[in-house]
Computed example of a mutant assay.
Amino acid sequence: MTWNWEQPDWPHFSYDTQALEPLEREFLLRSGEFLGVFRHVSPDERDQLRIDLISEEALKTSAIEGEYLNRDSVQSSLRQQLGLGNDGKRIPPAERGIAEMMADVYLHFFDPFSDRTLFNWHKMLMTGERRVEVVGRYREHADAMQIVSNRLDEPRVHFEAPPSSRVRSEMDTFITWFNDTSPKGKVSLPALTRAGIAHLYFESIHPFEDGNGRIGRALSEKALAQNLGEPSLISLAWTIERHRKTYYRMLEISSRDNKITDWLVYFAETILEAQRVTLTRVEFSVAKAKFYERFRGQFNERQEKMIARMFREGIDGFKGGLSAENYIAITKTSRATATRDLQDLVAKKALTRIGERRHTRYFLNLADRFEVVQQN
């Protein structure tokens, strides 16, 4: 197998700009919509929304690599990093490291890119990691850097990166390219095109022993933020994680050639899907604030607890809707009391109800959820 970095035209990628133009326009349009909706969120809600969005990205970018972290710990660390308070909780190394990297991407997105940036990110990610020999430097081992799967006796090689001896020169060229294609660079590129190339280019070099995927996705976030002039807050890792097999398949296919139109279209469409997810989550936050304003002082303690729990479930809510059994279990009350509470919430139009008897399910009544978007 001949890889992209072994081709004579490496690292000069070719692609159809016309195929990307409508996607680039949609990205800029949706970015404006996001800013319009975000203005309707109160300052306190904005801070919490930032924590929610960034922590979700931290959790999902780790989950893509098979590492599952604690949400509360990641959020506690992010609050510290963003100057939003310190709850004094002990934060495990992995959660602290990914939170530090994500906060750095958010806070310093417009800083020029350098190998120092990468080395700092790598040190953050590898906090407490003892299996990696070289931390905060490019890989140095003589063995081939391969991505393999299947049985040890019959491995399938999905990709092989350039040897370690080439990494330094490859990364010098990559860093120069990244800075030159920024909005104020010598040969600036549109947002989606630049983010897509940056991710594939970086992953093709695979400069570190571990952490390349997480750093590569952070690079795409940095590229998007630089092109927008502010942190994008898009749910990129969240979206990739939901379609992980497609993501890995596209990376594998695209690592064999330097004609990358299919990769860039795929990655652009992934970013647009991530934008839609983020916009929906912001709308949900606005709707939550309006919901509590509308029903302030109208719920008893059990109802307050249940409503708060439903909002914590996020935009997807309880899978299949809230049941009476859910209500009883969460509020620790009797069936008769649960029935009265739920009927009262429906009568007040705080919840909507579908189904009958044991198939009855309840949902938050957020009918005006998209009103803000329609007004802009």
Rank of each mutant, 00 (worst) to 15 (best):
N227Y: 04
S188W: 11
A191H: 09
T173P: 00
A198Y: 10
W238T: 09
D172V: 01
A191L: 10
E221G: 00
T173Q: 13
S204M: 01
V187W: 07
K222V: 15
L219S: 08
G229H: 08
G211D: 00
L228R: 07
E209P: 01
D180Y: 01
A195G: 06
R168H: 09
Y201G: 10
A223Q: 12
R168F: 04
S220Y: 05
I234W: 15
G211F: 00
E241H: 14
F178Q: 07
R242P: 03
I234R: 12
E241N: 15
G213F: 03
T181C: 04
L224P: 11
W177I: 01
N212Q: 13
T193D: 00
P231E: 07
S169D: 15
F202Y: 13
I175D: 04
H206Y: 07
T181M: 01
L219A: 05
N179Q: 12
A191N: 06
N227A: 12
V187S: 13
E209M: 08
A223T: 14
G216V: 14
H199N: 13
E203M: 02
S232C: 04
N227K: 08
I240C: 09
F178D: 02
V167Y: 07
Q226N: 05
T193L: 01
W238A: 02
G213I: 01
G213L: 05
R242F: 00
T239F: 00
S204D: 04
R194E: 06
E230P: 00
H199S: 08
V187E: 13
E203P: 04
T239V: 05
L200G: 11
A198N: 06
E230F: 11
R249M: 10
S188I: 09
L233R: 10
T193C: 01
T193I: 12
L236N: 04
P183S: 14
L233V: 06
G213T: 10
T246E: 15
D172G: 02
K245N: 13
R217S: 10
R249L: 11
T176I: 03
